[in-house]
Design a protein around this nucleic acid. Sequence first.
DNA 1: AAATAATTTGAAATCGATTTCAGGATAAAT
DNA 2: ATTTATCCTGAAATCGATTTCAAATTATTT
Lengths: 336, 336
Amino acid sequence: MDIKIVDVAAKAGVSPATVSRVLNESSSVTSKTKAKVMKAIEELGYHPNAVAKNLRSQKSMTIGVIVPDINASYFAEIIKGIENVAYASKYKVIICDAENQKEKEAEYLTLLMNRTVDAAILIAPLMSDEEICQISEKGYSLAVVGRYIEHDRIPCIYTDNVKFSKEVVQHLVENGHRDIVFLSGYAEAIDSYERLEGYLKALRDHHIPFRPELIENGNFNEEGGYEAMKRLFDKNLRFTAVFAANDEMALGVYKACAERDIAIPSQLAVVGVDNNRISKYITPTLSTVNQPKYTMGALLVEKLIDQMNENQFHDKRTFKVDSELIVRGSSNFRRE
Amino acid sequence: MDIKIVDVAAKAGVSPATVSRVLNESSSVTSKTKAKVMKAIEELGYHPNAVAKNLRSQKSMTIGVIVPDINASYFAEIIKGIENVAYASKYKVIICDAENQKEKEAEYLTLLMNRTVDAAILIAPLMSDEEICQISEKGYSLAVVGRYIEHDRIPCIYTDNVKFSKEVVQHLVENGHRDIVFLSGYAEAIDSYERLEGYLKALRDHHIPFRPELIENGNFNEEGGYEAMKRLFDKNLRFTAVFAANDEMALGVYKACAERDIAIPSQLAVVGVDNNRISKYITPTLSTVNQPKYTMGALLVEKLIDQMNENQFHDKRTFKVDSELIVRGSSNFRRE
DNA sequence: AAATAATTTGAAATCGATTTCAGGATAAAT
DNA sequence: ATTTATCCTGAAATCGATTTCAAATTATTT
């Protein structure tokens, strides 16, 4: 614990500079002295102090990720993509959980920015575009998942919510549905807004009148979907399909249906979003929209690392990725 | 970005020492000079360099957590417990995903140990007890979730697997089952071993002969449970209940049953472990064992911080926590 | 064998903060 | 008014590594 580079140097009979050289292979060292140093390191059980190292070398070879909720598999997959690509480029990844709190998000970002990491990736950040840009202006490396950012130094990647929402509605319409419930996540979330937009556009394309009473909000979780669905059932509205903001909420829909003996898909079609691992395993299997979560993380961090290495800003730094509709049992049924 | 404490000091017309004092409120400063310093900080947009600060003060007020898989809600809940208690004590928490790889676990632990954090918490670590103790001996603060560690400086918290496994089997036996499948997670995992032990003990207690062919292995995930169940069905064995290593695997069992039109619980009772959020939402609702995940994280980190502050080792540093069986639809059925 | 080039090595500066120690200013006590 | 105690402040040391620069060593060329 208390062994420092000078101790190793003393034991090996060389200078600290030389020990540093063998440690980092930063310049050539005679194989003989190298052996002496290695032996000393081994015998003393020396571990270099990363804090001192980072201070002097002005880098840490780590990337920080701030995630809104560590208990959401959607984000976990993105992080896996980030981690694997970063790791392959010798970067380590540390993750901070903002717990959907703006204040915590800001605090953790401050922690990361204060040179603890070389760059930070914000996943579905709560803070505004302006705040993000301001931080970037101060000279910190940033990247953003889940939102388009208008700033030439911030790589970002996001999905075309409007497009896939239209596809979902189109699919339901083709199967004979005209009264389609839209179960939104947080009403404030940008994703919710864009998905609603796609839903509305698709309705218009098919000359289906919009019925505002078919919109309900949940919280992107099972309970939210369940409660929202109960409210709808209680209102005795006419509808034959549900487009849920994500698969967790769709599972809530399943439960609400089970309680009322409503059969999926014959009485009610359900489509979720995210292609959660469970969606293949529940009964009936859940139709959903597959987002290339892993790839999104991987692509973004690749770009970020590129940018840090070359120390210049690429022309192509924003990525809008496509999602694909996966039709499974919960909506694979044609109404006459 | 390039603004340092000396710049602030110069602008405010004071020494760096004084700036440091207002920053850390480490000793009293005249309200007049304090105002000058604050103004300079504000105008320059100064952020202290945490690396330099940590080097000098020999602490970072952060705790690192190494988790085997960031995409497992079981661990996520533990981390929430850790994070909230740590945060309340002014500690920040950073998380590293070892992705079930021993090598990655070791690398991330090295990263954390090199003074990046003040202490590290290992969740269900892959490395051996000996390795963990060795690291502690070098003077690093460690704590462990999910395993008992024989070392007077390492707080640890773990569940009584044997006990709740016996309870699960007891519950099934009371409902008329005698041929109970045991779906293990990884065969090597200590949890799997202890749960098997509980299963065997309970059988013995009820004078039920052990049938080795009723043991199958999965991987703690949906697919593992599904595949294992298919293998069992294919062998045409006689059984009326399944005790799955966790809820994800139980969901795999659900799917395998759905495909063969086997009704749960009337034809097959199912019990999982972990009380995953989905377990309340699937149909039928899943009987499971609730582990106090959040509390485990919270309790452990509280002890860890205590130990760091007081700089002494408490008498009570190991915690064996109890879990409770939650009977729901999937096993709430009495065979005659 | 001498001169030159290339390679190793070490002393000292450096990264950017905190902290110690001592001196100066101010307040309290005599 | 002088002494004593208290409070602020700054100069310099420090944390533990890396990195620069120059000296020393070794290898190469003539």
